[in-house]
């Protein structure tokens, strides 16, 4: 069984982003980019399934402009077998269009599982996996914190608002990862070297006739209304006094 893992190139989670003064977006020039943290978890899960003999091949796919192949290369260095780069003019392709491209790739590759991150930490949309499952007519399990692959089915424990829920899905299926699914590995130096020789196929969205025109027009991007630091108090008693005055006790 093949596993397809969509990985997104995003601003590294440690970077404090800056909003452009003219409201046209966030500053992306010369900023450290990384694989979306949830997608590292997705790659890790796929690799573990392969290492357990339950999957035969792990394919990393990413949709984005120049340098997106670096992110695919990271997945290959972790251990994925090959990559697919759907090259676009611009970054920030919307989840619906990404899901349509992924559906076309699924039709070609016929994976038994697609494992995505639950959310990209740049657009924070939390949509792509659910949309892909819809377009394929497959079962979905979002926010996975445990995955047990059976014969023709997969048992998934999900993080829900009040606790945990376990589902059994028919395969093929779409999963999205939550933070506690696993601890992703670091790529070792030999594996980074090996990854340089692994194949990355370049494709274009037009091949499948997917329209990338955004459905959401971004009118402005602004700083959130900030909070200013308040005061330091020196004792619990003093704090309680302030809380009383503030009317929150």
């Amino acid at each position: 069984m093949k596993i397809l893992v969509p990985v997104k190139r995003v601003v590294d989670y440690n970077v404090k982003i800056r909003v452009k003064a003219d409201g046209t977006g966030v500053e992306l020039a010369n900023i450290k980019m990384s694989m979306n943290p949830f997608d590292e978890i997705a790659v890790e899960e796929a690799l573990r399934l392969k290492e357990a003999g339950k999957a035969t091949e792990v394919i990393a796919v990413s949709i984005g402009p120049v340098k997106t192949d670096e992110t695919i290369r990271t997945a290959l260095a972790m251990g994925a077998d090959r990559g697919i780069w759907v090259k676009t003019e611009e970054a920030g392709i919307e989840p619906l269009a990404v899901a349509k491209i992924l559906k076309a790739i699924v039709a070609e590759e016929a994976p038994g599982l697609v494992i995505l991150g639950k959310q990209a930490i740049d657009d924070d949309c939390n949509q792509t996996g659910q949309m892909l499952a819809a377009l394929l007519g497959w079962a979905q399990a979002t926010f996975a914190s445990k995955v047990a692959l059976g014969d023709g089915t997969v048992e998934v424990t999900r993080e829900i608002d009040g606790g945990l829920q376990t589902l059994s899905l028919d395969l093929p299926a779409v999963l999205t990862t939550d933070l506690r699914l696993n601890e992703p590995r670091y790529a070792s130096l030999p594996n980074i070297m090996k990854a340089k020789k692994k194949p990355i196929t370049e494709r274009g969205a037009a091949e499948w006739g997917v329209d990338l025109t955004p459905r959401l027009q971004v009118l402005a991007t602004t700083e959130p209304t900030g909070r200013t630091a308040g005061i330091k108090v020196s004792s619990a008693a003093e704090l309680v006094g302030h809380l009383k005055t503030a009317g929150v006790l």
């Binding site: 982003i17 966030v26 657009d123 402005a220 991007t221 602004t222 700083e223 959130p224």
Partner: peptide, 9 residues
């Protein structure tokens, strides 16, 4: 977006 560090309209 970006964990609330920017607001998109």
């Amino acid at each position: 977006i970006y964990a609330g560090n920017a607001i998109q309209r």
